[in-house]
Design a protein around this nucleic acid. Structure first.
Lengths: 196, 196, 196, 196
DNA sequence: TATGAATGAGGTTTCATTCAT
DNA sequence: GATGAATGAAACCTCATTCAT
């Protein structure tokens, strides 16, 4: 299994650094090889082609990202608190790895449609996780019935994603994690004035 | 003024078609020129370089997009209905121009950081418009006070943008406009069960 | 006769200025037209093509250059003094028109072989003039008999040309004309120590 | 060291042939690559850009040219004979490599000012060599004291260069080397009749 | 396994020249 | 005569990928 050989991770980590520091279009295979400390040709012993590096990068990093969120959420009962934890984890993980944040929020989006489709496939389990939280919330009677779940998921994901992207583009100058509770509240209760 | 000569718009419209049909990276200047029915060199009488075509495209199209929304919203009193109208207009305009939807949601995002920065500048008035609606809602007492307005805007824009992108990626197979009311309700009232 | 219409000279003078200030390869037809205060297309009413501007420029300017030298030399009797006058005129004329010096010594040499051939044709009368001075000197018994006249001419022209080129490349910081007598003496008597 | 790998010289030799046969402006990189028997991209493993090929060409070829002259001159005592040898070597070397003669005398002069400046830098040691011969001649008492050495060098170089250029332009139809003694005599003794 | 020299396809832009007005 | 908008050919260089060692 190629994925378990040390150079596999070595190359992926090099790719994250190179892309974060040079930008997507300035991240040539040779640059990634150099950063990884291997020859250009070696890359092709571990990856089919350049796109495969990026897809693998996303798979590895987002796989861990999602796994960690799933772990943390599992023991929580309330769907509402699950959602809060998801938001906090989403923000904290990207806050802790600035390189990865730049790569996922800004650089990889410059890829072509085909690659973005594959990236979306990797994200699928995350969206499914959101769906299941919403479903639980409905079952628990704390979320409105008759919700269009795809739409909910788009609202949650779109909001979180936009927030992280803005934070990255502002060069991470403010505390992203600190906004988790506020946005959780907004997603649950909306803009409207709440009485009492 | 070059912007008022007919070939300016002719080339921009050609660019939208070519980019939507061939993808960003397969949209060579020669292809755009051919579609516009002009010589390659003519492009450079109207645009500084290729990037300038894309920036101008976004300026023209999003300028109109935003203007139309502003016009429609102005006579409306209630901030809540203003937001609804904004959502409807956002969806309907992109629904009516599939090529443009593809270009703005998928293709132009593949551009480099520099171009994306310019694109963001064009979007600014739209974000300001959202801010002003939120502020009015607060002043009218129908939106919660103490809202973090930047955050609200990110929620609204992130949600709408994610919805349109998903719709485009699903090849526009469902009715986007039909979801305007639902998402408006969600943004206003959130996920939580509403009694009564 | 096109050569006598005012715009003919106007365009040539514009070309000298533009080429001297921008360099040969940065002297587009449109730039020359602008400097001349005419439309691009007008150029082609007076010149067959771009090369024709340059050949005509050389013809006009070098024609005058040679004519003036011929005039000054005619009344002089001694071949040696004729040569001195030729050198002085060569240097003084180019010293007095810095733009022209730059154009003839540096810029026009960047032209292709074909154009340079035509330029050489224009120079022919100048070389013939040198030949005749040498012949007179021989006839007068002051120049060595049996001189290879082509070779002499190459020595004289090569020397003067190299001196002017060096002077132009040193940005005309020293007095070129002041070297006329010295080089005249050198051409006549060579490097060797002269006794008595 | 790239300069020592065989392809470096291979490409330079190809450039000489291509430029001599097609002219400076018709010598595309692809043509040079084809002549060298390498891929276009390979050129850029050895040279920064096209100009770098030309500068390197001149450095290699003129470097050897000058070195050989220096070697031959070193053992000679008399400054006068040194100058004769320099002239002979100058002529013989260019006579022996017609392609190179065409390239240095005609084609490379079409380059832009920047490249010509670099070419001049390469020529500097040759001019210094001439200066030192003149100085020796003065020290040996066989050349006139008080000579303006820059001017002498311009006379020598200008004369030789003009002679070679004329010979190349006459398509090398006569024996250049055979004129070495005559021009040497002229440089030393000038045009004036020598008695006795 | 690992290397890295070699490959070669592909696109933006300039600018001399034309020609309808 | 004069204009200037339109034309379209042409080339340098990059970089993902291969393959002999």
């Amino acid at each position: 299994m190629k994925k378990n050989r040390p150079k596999f991770k070595q190359i992926i980590d090099a790719a994250v650094v190179v892309i974060a520091e040079n930008g997507y279009h300035q991240s040539q295979v040779s640059k990634i090889a150099k950063q990884a400390g291997v020859a250009d040709g070696t890359i092709y012993l571990y990856f089919k082609n350049k796109e495969d590096i990026l897809v693998s990068l996303f798979q590895e990093k987002m796989g861990q990202f999602i796994e960690k969120i799933e772990e943390e959420i599992k023991p929580i009962e309330s769907a509402s608190l699950k959602l809060l934890k998801l938001i906090e984890m989403h923000f904290s993980q990207l806050s802790q790895d600035h390189h990865l944040a730049i790569v996922t929020q800004l650089e990889l989006r410059q890829s072509n449609k085909e690659l973005r489709q594959k990236i979306n496939d990797v994200l699928k389990p995350y969206l499914v996780l959101m769906d299941s939280i919403v479903q639980e919330g409905i079952d628990q009677g704390i979320f409105e019935q008759n919700l269009n779940k795809r739409l909910i998921r788009q609202m949650i994901f779109g909001t979180l994603d936009e927030m992280v992207t803005n934070w990255v583009m502002k060069e991470q100058k403010y505390n992203l994690l600190g906004q988790a509770e506020v946005i959780h509240d907004l997603l649950l209760n909306g803009l409207t004035t709440r009485k009492g």
